[in-house]
Each structure stands twice: as structure tokens, then as C-alpha cells.
């Protein structure tokens, strides 16, 4: 210890940086990353290789036994669990583009000089994000139930019967809740990105005769491509993890089964079905699927961003 301190202070005297300094700076991140991301994944993976086994009637106690990949085999044999994946992907394929389009629309709108009372409207669009998703789902749950929803009652009175909880549309009713909640934060991220675009670009565009719309589509959007990438990526990961909204809405409709999304299936298996080891295997599968999808989106975006970069 004393030697290293001595070495460190001598170096500092010579104007050199301690070799430990960078590690010190990244340490908080690394520690939290290991503790709250890597460790849980490792624990889940280890758990997934075991199973609680009893014998006879089971009252003689039980033991945790190594079962290899048996839990993974069971998870892959569970049709209802597997169907959850294409379901959330379909959901994501619709919800994420719609959300990004609306977020980008608002961000570009607020970035123009045309909008009056910009701060107020920005705040209004952002406000739903401040509502926790469980509360948001509860609120929308009321609006989705015909006898307590003023909205549905209004439509009913003009002869239009809407049933947002019907089995054919309930997925989009869930998407609507998420959309309402998340447009705001994505709008803010894109809007902030727009603020960092050099203003000279717009001047140059104006001098070249580009209008507001053309500037927005051909200058601003390409310039904030990295921010769009970030928000798209996190949104897609978000849809794979879909849980809060359908779990809450499940209590008011029979059209959302307990294994409607992969995350709900994991929850049901672990807490209701009391099989945390099988649930761990399912969680590892979901984690890998999320990783694969994230990498695909990342690769696709890299190519388009590069192309956009060359085009400028």
C-alpha cells in the first residue's frame, strides 16, 4: 500500500495522472452494473439449471437438484409462453413507429418558431410520462369499461359501440396506454437533440430556399438520427419487456390471459405457479431474445446512419 501511494504521489509531482484515476471514475458504474445487471443474470442462469424436487406426496421435504437444461426444454415446449414473443413483436412493430412518428412530429413542431406557448404545450405532452405506468393503466382501464367510461358512453349515445377490451383489439388498447405515457419522454429526447444542431445549418438551408417542412425533414431529422436510434432501441426493448399495462388491465378483462406477454408468463410461473426455476429459464430466454433484437436494431441503424452521414 505505502509503496503504491508513494509511486502515485511521485507521479503526480511529475505532472502525470495516477493510473488508477480512470478506474476510480468508472467504478460507480461498474459496481452498480455488476451488482444490479450482471449478478442477477448470473443468478437467474444458475437457478435455471436447478429444480426443486420432492418425492411421494412431498411432505418429506424437498431438495434443489441439478437438472441441466430441462427447464429450457419445458419453456420451449410451452406454446402459450412462446406465442407471447410474436405478440409483443407485433405490438412493438406497430407501437414503436407510431410513437416515434408522433414524438418526432411534436419535437419538430416545438422546434419551429411558429408555435406559441411552446413551454406550456411541451409540458402538456410530457405530463403523462410523470404518471406511473400502473396508474396510467388503471386510469385507462376506467375509460375502457363501458358502464363507467364517459368516452364510451358518449360514443354509445351517438350510436357507435366501442369495446376496447374485446379480444381482437385489446392489444392495441394496451399500446394506446403505452403511447400516451411514452410519447412525452421521446419527444423531449428528440427535442433536446434538435437544440444541439448548429443553428447555421438552418440559416444555410433558408438561404438555399428550403421551407420549414423541408428543413425539418431533410436537415433536422438526419441530424438527430443518433437520438432517434437511442429512443427506438430503448422503446423496442421496452415492448419486449411489456408487463405493467397488460398486467393491470388483466384484472378488468378476461381477454388478457396470465401468460399474455413473456414477462407476464415469467411472473405467473414464478409467483402463481410457484416454480422460480422454470421462471428463471424463461427469463434467460427473454433476456437473450432482447439482446438479439437490440443487436439487430443497432446494426440496422448503424447502416442507415452511415448512409445518412455520407449523404450530407
Amino acid at each position: 500500500m505505502s509503496t503504491s501511494t508513494a509511486t502515485g504521489s511521485r507521479r503526480r509531482r511529475h505532472g502525470a495522472v495516477s493510473p488508477w484515476a480512470p478506474y476510480l471514475f468508472v467504478a460507480p458504474f461498474v459496481v452498480l452494473f455488476l451488482l444490479f445487471l450482471v449478478a442477477p443474470i448470473a443468478v437467474a442462469f444458475v437457478n435455471s439449471l436447478f429444480s426443486r424436487q420432492s418425492s411421494g406426496l412431498g411432505f418429506g421435504g424437498s431438495s434443489i437438484e441439478f437438472v441441466g437444461l430441462a427447464n429450457f426444454v419445458r419453456a420451449f415446449a410451452d406454446r402459450d409462453f412462446l406465442i407471447g414473443f410474436p405478440r409483443v413483436l407485433l405490438y412493438g412493430a406497430v407501437q414503436v413507429p407510431v410513437m416515434m412518428a408522433i414524438a418526432a412530429f411534436f419535437a419538430l413542431l416545438f422546434d419551429t418558431a411558429l408555435v406559441k406557448g411552446r413551454r406550456f404545450f411541451q409540458f402538456t405532452v410530457f405530463l403523462p410520462y410523470a404518471v406511473p405506468s400502473v396508474i396510467a393503466a388503471l386510469l385507462w382501464g376506467f375509460l375502457y369499461q363501458p358502464s363507467v367510461s364517459p368516452v364510451l358512453q358518449f360514443f354509445e349515445s351517438v350510436g357507435i359501440t366501442l369495446s376496447p377490451l374485446a379480444s381482437t383489439v385489446v392489444l392495441w388498447s394496451i399500446a394506446n396506454v403505452a403511447l400516451w405515457s411514452l410519447v412525452g419522454i421521446n419527444m423531449i429526447i428528440l427535442f433536446s437533440a434538435l437544440q444541439s444542431v448548429p443553428r447555421e445549418m438552418y440559416e444555410a438551408a433558408r438561404i438555399d430556399g428550403a421551407g420549414e417542412v423541408r428543413t425539418a425533414l431533410q436537415i433536422k431529422l438526419p441530424m438527430i438520427a443518433p437520438a432517434v436510434l437511442l429512443t427506438t432501441l430503448s422503446s423496442i426493448i421496452g415492448t419486449l419487456q411489456l408487463f405493467n399495462e397488460p398486467q393491470v388491465l388483466q384484472t378488468i378483462t378476461s381477454n388478457i390471459p396470465s401468460d399474455y406477454t413473456p414477462n407476464m408468463a415469467i411472473y405467473a410461473t414464478s409467483t402463481l405457479g410457484k416454480d422460480p426455476h422454470l421462471a428463471s429459464a424463461m427469463a434467460v430466454i427473454l433476456g437473450l431474445a432482447t439482446l438479439v433484437v437490440s443487436l439487430l436494431v443497432l446494426a440496422a441503424n448503424k447502416r442507415t446512419t452511415n448512409r445518412a452521414g455520407h449523404g450530407l
Binding site: 429444480s51 424436487q53 420432492s54 418425492s55 411421494g56 412431498g58 424437498s62 416454480d275
Partner: peptide, 8 residues
């Protein structure tokens, strides 16, 4: 499910 738990 019971059989997966090792029960008879």
C-alpha cells in the same frame, strides 16, 4: 406440473 416437481 406435479411430475415435474418429482411428486408421485
Amino acid at each position: 406440473d406435479l411430475e415435474n416437481r418429482g411428486l408421485e
